[in-house]
């Protein structure tokens, strides 16, 4: 059989990958550049290239709604990051203790992952209904007024509880997979040395699971930045603007306010955490192992 020319040998593969290459280059590489470029323009109803320098960014950072959005996202982000990591790890560790009914517990803890943020948001909106939901029940028991969805200082925690409910199962699953990958001998050695269970987890297992935590961190962070559906379903940004988030700011500017340039500037800002956290992680995960 004659050896085909190098270029032609992979021609079929190249043709087959053409859609992926096009998406990667045009959309995932070109898209952010396009948005960045148009964030320096005064585009309103339609995108146009009339340059205004950093005007959109100045206006963005002078906007109270944007500042509130950032604060809210930071608060939600910290709560959800800590909550998801701690609860996810603790649950995974508990499930890993050779317990009975492991499958039952896992099924219960994981099912919200199958539900959308819209469904999640609407369930919790009802549960936290001020008159008829949990706040009403608590008031009935004489535990004082507590109305997370209408209290500006509590509303982000209300969203956090719903987000935690939906998202912890996934992280638990990843942690559990990590725990199952740890050699039994580590446990035996710790027991021989008389190290307690909790101390073994904290001082031996957790450090060993650093890559798993890194992956979880990346997944949670990218999820936090995208926070949108849950807010739309649960609070629509209210009361007032006290549960606005950056993703919603972008959408409101682009489709509600017909202020595309402002939307592009805000969207570009949303890229910052991705660049800071995800790109180094991708480099570590893929860059070193490049083969062929």
């Amino acid at each position: 059989m004659p050896r085909p020319v190098r270029l032609l040998r992979n021609l079929q593969a190249k043709l087959a990958m053409a859609p992926m290459i096009a998406v990667a280059l045009v959309l995932f590489l070109g898209g952010p550049i396009w948005t960045l470029l148009h964030s320096f323009t005064d585009s309103r109803l339609l995108p146009r290239l009339r340059w205004v320098g950093l005007d959109q960014y100045e206006r963005l950072w002078a906007s109270r709604k944007w500042l509130v959005s950032i604060e809210n996202l930071a608060l939600y982000g910290i709560c959800s990051l800590v909550g998801t990591l701690v609860l996810g790890f603790v649950l995974a560790a508990l499930l890993d203790r050779k317990i009975r009914f492991e499958n039952t517990f896992r099924t219960i803890l994981l099912y919200p992952v199958a539900l959308s943020f819209i469904v999640t948001g609407l369930i919790w909106q009802w549960l936290l209904n001020p008159e008829l939901g949990i706040p009403g029940v608590m008031r009935g028991l004489g535990w004082g007024a507590f109305d997370p969805l209408n209290d500006p200082s509590l509303v982000m925690y209300g969203l956090g509880v719903a987000g935690l409910w939906q998202g912890t199962g996934l992280i638990m699953c990843i942690m559990l997979a990590g725990l199952r990958g740890i050699d039994d001998n580590i446990w035996n050695a710790a027991r021989v040395d008389g190290v307690g269970v909790v101390k073994t987890y904290l001082s031996i297992i957790v450090p060993m699971m650093r890559p798993v935590f890194a992956t979880a961190l990346v997944l949670i962070t990218s999820g936090i930045v995208k926070l949108y559906d849950l807010v739309v379903a649960m609070t629509s940004g209210g009361p007032g603007i006290s549960s606005e988030v950056p993703a919603k700011y972008v959408m409101d500017a682009m489709f509600g306010g017909q202020n595309l340039g402002q939307g592009f500037a805000a969207a570009t800002m949303m890229l910052v955490p991705v660049v800071v956290i995800v790109v180094p992680w991708t480099y570590l995960a893929f860059g070193r192992r490049k083969r062929g």
Partner: peptide, 8 residues
């Protein structure tokens, strides 16, 4: 990449 960046 947040979808908002690629939306338009």
């Amino acid at each position: 990449i947040p979808y908002q960046v690629l939306l338009y």
